[in-house]
């Protein structure tokens, strides 16, 4: 479904990503792990067109994406959604308007259909709050789940998650992980999850990619990770067993 080939990105003299290649199949959950500052978030922004790569290609269903115009990206972003590290809800819009925002711009749904869809996705993320309330009135965990719903409501084929469980309590972390799995199993949505959280990766990932200094250090199926033979990977695994 998605093929990333020899992707590279630099800012000024600093190389952030170098020669990154991997593939993502339909319904697959891939975790991208690595230490801070190793280019994980930049990778996601390249995949959704928020940044332009210096080298390499990204293919979505055979279509090359890196040379697309902003207008073309608007169509692609209906298929590839991104959930940001911070909730990134629009402060000046209430809960309903935040969820309806993308539907109004990217779909032909009428107001009744939008209302129905918003209600359905609030149910999916298990949020029962006043639709007129503003993001600042909600807890961080609720904001994160709303952010998830705002992206998922467009029913993309690929979801990109940037540190989805950072700063969340165990209960909210479990809820987010369950949602990612549910989307994958029931709706065949593929997910790329950027995270530090080895525990989450071992719980829900199908495959894991380890980035180190902007390069792929190791990638493979989750159950092969203990045989990676890479020190950094073993360190992450040790943290898990402690």
């Amino acid at each position: 479904m998605l093929r990333v080939s020899h992707l590279g990105k630099s800012f000024a003299d600093q190389t952030i990503l170098k020669n990154v290649s991997f593939e993502l199949d339909a319904g697959e959950i891939v975790f991208v792990l690595g230490t801070s500052g190793t280019g994980k978030s930049v990778l996601l922004k390249l995949l959704v067109g928020l940044l332009k790569p210096d080298a390499g290609e990204v293919y979505f269903k055979g279509q090359e994406l890196t040379q697309k115009t902003e207008a073309e990206w608007n169509l692609i972003r209906q298929k590839i959604g991104m959930v940001f590290q911070q909730p990134a809800l629009f402060d000046s819009l209430n809960v309903f308007e935040n969820l309806a925002f993308g539907l109004r711009r990217l779909t032909q749904l009428d107001e009744y259909q939008i209302q129905k869809k918003v209600a359905a996705f609030l149910e999916l993320v298990q949020i029962r709050c006043d639709l007129q309330s503003f993001p600042s009135q909600l807890s961080y965990g609720t904001q994160k789940r709303l952010s998830f719903a705002r992206t998922a409501i467009l029913e993309p084929e690929i979801l990109l998650f940037d540190e989805p469980t950072t700063g969340l309590d165990p209960q909210s972390t479990y809820a987010i992980n369950t949602l990612i799995q549910k989307m994958s199993k029931e709706l065949r949505v593929s997910s790329i999850v950027v995270s530090h959280d080895m525990e989450c990766a071992m719980a829900i990932a199908d495959r894991i990619i380890f980035l180190d200094k902007g390069e792929v250090l190791w990638q493979g199926a989750k159950d092969q990770i203990r045989h990676s033979g890479k020190d950094l990977v073993n360190q992450f695994l040790m943290d898990l067993t402690l």
């Binding site: 991104m82 990134a88 711009r105 990217l106």
Partner: peptide, 12 residues
């Protein structure tokens, strides 16, 4: 807070 990136991702 990534709201500007989110705007772009939602077609605005």
């Amino acid at each position: 807070t990534e709201q500007i990136d989110a705007l772009k991702c939602l077609g605005a």
